[in-house]
Each structure stands twice: as structure tokens, then as C-alpha cells.
Design a binder for these strands. Structure first.
Lengths: 232, 232
DNA sequence: CGTCCATTTGAGGTGGATCAACCCTAGTGG
DNA sequence: CCACTAGGGTTGATCCACCTCAAATGGACG
């Protein structure tokens, strides 16, 4: 509650100075933001900074411009389940109901664009294209969640790590190499494992020549075929 | 593929005889089906019968009238993750994209209402209320999936079973008692456990007086407070 | 009344968690 | 420019929650 207030104040302060009325309209966010009455604003979060908390009112919808974000839920004793990582281009924080169902934090320094939820609601009330787009984005998140339930409920540790590597390879590999923004603990909390188990699985894949390291978070996949096989 | 064809033929055969053009409009399905051009049909599936397969074209959207349905994904070696149980009143099979992401089977003899996906798409293209309703329903499924990821990734066996009991109590308890339509294996595949672990957890709760049995699938919760506590 | 399958219960095994060093590297300050 | 430090990562040893395998029990239905 307090955090939300602080965040909102910070955003408004920044908005005061510079509103960005016209943004490039080539991605999923743009497809909405291009419509009448929708104003997108830019904002930055530093490493480890909270963007919104679980069950906070969902005032804004966000798109990662650069950086990376984790969405997660906590149990009362601190156990954490990360539901998704949001990377450059991804939209997050979109809700049909009044509140955010997961908390969100910047993993590293992150720039986002954001629009007011209310203006999306308004646009969707007029424009069926916008309404359809909102539905499609939520359905995309649902698809990911369904795949992830299968992983969390039924895959082995090695299968989970293999799935994770292939997902990250697809989403953030540049020139065959990926620079992971998140630490081993984040990966563990995403995969329902401990950080030690993640580390051991990666070491084993390294020993088998399936991947190469240049620094713990710089990974090259050397054999996607074998990784797909390990994925089940 | 073959199954889908057979199902469709069966549906059409039945539709030939009796179309139900006007249905009571008091629930979430009705809110849509009440609109112009939407025709709801009734159909029945027998215990264990497949309704649609994973990755089949999503031709229909369904609502359980009576009975119970399981939605699930399979790994190549047969491991199964049930993503949701659909009980009387629940809508299932709604997709924004072209195909079903999970398979669906009747757990027991089940009656459903169904409407063609295409007519929903058409109505949503005209009527913003319908479009909004579709989004809200998908968002509801996403919320459930997010909660379930936390369960699958981070809860202990006892916590999972406690969560399950409270969910089923909320959804299908009549006069303080619930009649579970699904077997222990289904519960296990929903909770990411084996059927033996589910059975042991239930026995333990019984021994502690937290629940009572009258037949393995007839359960009375005697202490919801303690169950909530076990849930974490 | 018998059969069949779901469920329970028992005994033992194991994958991943936990606990504990140790190592590596990036950042810091002298 | 380098020594120091702190946090992230790796690796090892042990533990245990849950799985696996097996057998007994029970309830529904012909």
C-alpha cells in the first residue's frame, strides 16, 4: 500500500516533465497505444526495485523497453514462486480485475513504458480491436502458465532446466549467446527448485558439452537437439 | 484428429434433432448466449469420454450443466498434469487462439451446453460487452493458473491437499458435504503428487479429525480453520 | 455373492533439499 | 593499479519428503 503510493508519486513526478504522446507502433503495446486517448509514459526502475506489490490496485499496464522484470507470489514464510520473467518488448501488469495478482520487481535496471489501465478500459469500451488485443494478451499469459504448470507438476529437475534454457534461448539469444539477467535463485524460484539444484544441472550440461559458459550468466547452447531431448 | 471428427459428427447428429434456442440467462455463459446469433446446444459425454484433444482446433466453447470435466496436458511418457477441474456452471474450452491448449475429458457422465467459437468471435466483433466478458473469463482462468503454479512449485504435499479440499469445498459443497467426482489419481495429477501421497494426506487429516468420510469420495470438512492453517 | 477396481496401508528407495565449505569475480577503496 | 571484500556461484555430504513397489482392504455393481 505504502509502496504503491510512493511508486505512483514517483511516476507522476516524472510524467509532469515529459509526456511521450507518439511512440513507434510496431509491437503489441503500440497496437494499443496508437489509439486515441492513450498516452504512454516512460519510467525507470533500479535493480531490485519493486514495481508493484501483490494485490495492489492495478493502475498501470507496463511494457519492458530494456531490462528484465520478475512477477511472483510469496507464501507467508517467504517461499516464492516466480510466474514469469518479462524481457524487452513484453507487456506485464495487465489485469482484467481491479488488482495485480502477482508482485513485480526489476531484476536489473529497467526502463518501461506504461499506460493507465483506465485509458485502456476506456478504449476497449469503444474499440473492439483494442478489446480483442487485451483478451489475446491475457490468453498468451494463460498459455504460458498452463505450460508452466506441467513443468512444475510433472517434470524432473533436468527437464525443467532444459525447458528454461530453451525458453531463454528463444527469447533473448543474440548471435547464439544469451545473457541471463537473473541469478540462480531466481531461476530456482521460477522452476520450483533450489538454486543448488539449478547450478548442478547447469554444471552437468556443461560437462556434457551441451552448453558453454563465458561467465555464470553468459551461456551458449551448443546442442539444442540434445536439450530438446532432455526436455521430455 | 480422428476423435475430433467423430465428436463433431456426434454433436451434429444430436443437434439435428433438438436445438435449444433460448436458455435461462443468469450465469456467465448466459450473459453471452443471450446475444443475437448465438445458439446454445446441449450434449452429453459419458464417464471417461474425451471432449477434445490437446492442440485440436477449438471449434466450440463449453459449459458444464451437470457432471465434471478435467483439463490436462500429457508428456510423451504419459505423465499427466491436470490444469483444472470444471464443475457445474463452469465454462471451459474457451480459446483466443485457434486450438485447445489442453485436452478435456468427462470425469463422470456429463451434460454440457456448447456454442460455436465462431459465433462468439462474431458477437465479440460487434458487441463490446461480449468482448469484455470473454476477456474476463480468460483472466479468471489465468488467476487460477497463477495460484496453482504457486501450489505446484512451492507447497508441501499436505499444503496442496489442504488447498485442494478448501477449493472443492467452496466449489461443490452442499450442506457442508462434498461429493468428489474424481479419483485419487486425478487429484494427484492435479496437485503434482502420486495418488498414494494424496491418500496418506487425507488419512492423516481424518485421523486428526479435520475431515470426515462417508465413502472415499464423500468428505465433510470438520475444521476449515485448521485446514486454512495447514495451507500456509 | 463374487468380481473388479479404487483406495488404503506398509516397506523401502531416491531425487532433490538442506547444510556447509569453498571459489570466483566484479566492484571498492586505498 | 592492486588488494580487499562481498555477493553470487559451485561443489560436497547428508537428510528426508515423497515416490515406488507391493499387498491388503473395501465398496460398487453385475
Amino acid at each position: 500500500m505504502l509502496t504503491q503510493t510512493l511508486n505512483t508519486q514517483a511516476i507522476n513526478t516524472q510524467i509532469g516533465g515529459k509526456i511521450a504522446p507518439a511512440l513507434p507502433v510496431t509491437d503489441q503495446f503500440g497496437a494499443i497505444a496508437g489509439h486515441v486517448g492513450i498516452v504512454a509514459t516512460e519510467f525507470s526502475y533500479r535493480k531490485e526495485e519493486e514495481i508493484y506489490g501483490e494485490d495492489e490496485p492495478a493502475e498501470y499496464v507496463y511494457q519492458v523497453v530494456s531490462g528484465a522484470v520478475r512477477s511472483y507470489k510469496l507464501l507467508s514464510d517467504g517461499r516464492r514462486q516466480i510466474g514469469a520473467f518479462h524481457l524487452a518488448g513484453d507487456v506485464f501488469g495487465l489485469e482484467s480485475g481491479p488488482t495485480h495478482r502477482l508482485a513485480a520487481e526489476a531484476i536489473i535496471d529497467t526502463n518501461v513504458r506504461l499506460v493507465k489501465r483506465a485509458s485502456l478500459e476506456k478504449a476497449a469500451g469503444t474499440d473492439v480491436q483494442v478489446a480483442r488485443k487485451l483478451w489475446t494478451m491475457t490468453a498468451g499469459e494463460l498459455r504460458h502458465a498452463e505450460d508452466h504448470m506441467l513443468l512444475l507438476g510433472r517434470k524432473t529437475a533436468m527437464e525443467r532446466v532444459a525447458t528454461f534454457l530453451l525458453e531463454m534461448d528463444r527469447r533473448l539469444a543474440v548471435a547464439g549467446m544469451m545473457a541471463l539477467p537473473m541469478c540462480r535463485r531466481d531461476i530456482g524460484d521460477y522452476l520450483g527448485l533450489t538454486l543448488e539444484t539449478v547450478s548442478r544441472a547447469l554444471s552437468q550440461l556443461h560437462a556434457q558439452g551441451i552448453l558453454g559458459f563465458s561467465g555464470a550468466r553468459q551461456i551458449v547452447l551448443r546442442n539444442r537437439q540434445r536439450l530438446h531431448h532432455l526436455d521430455a
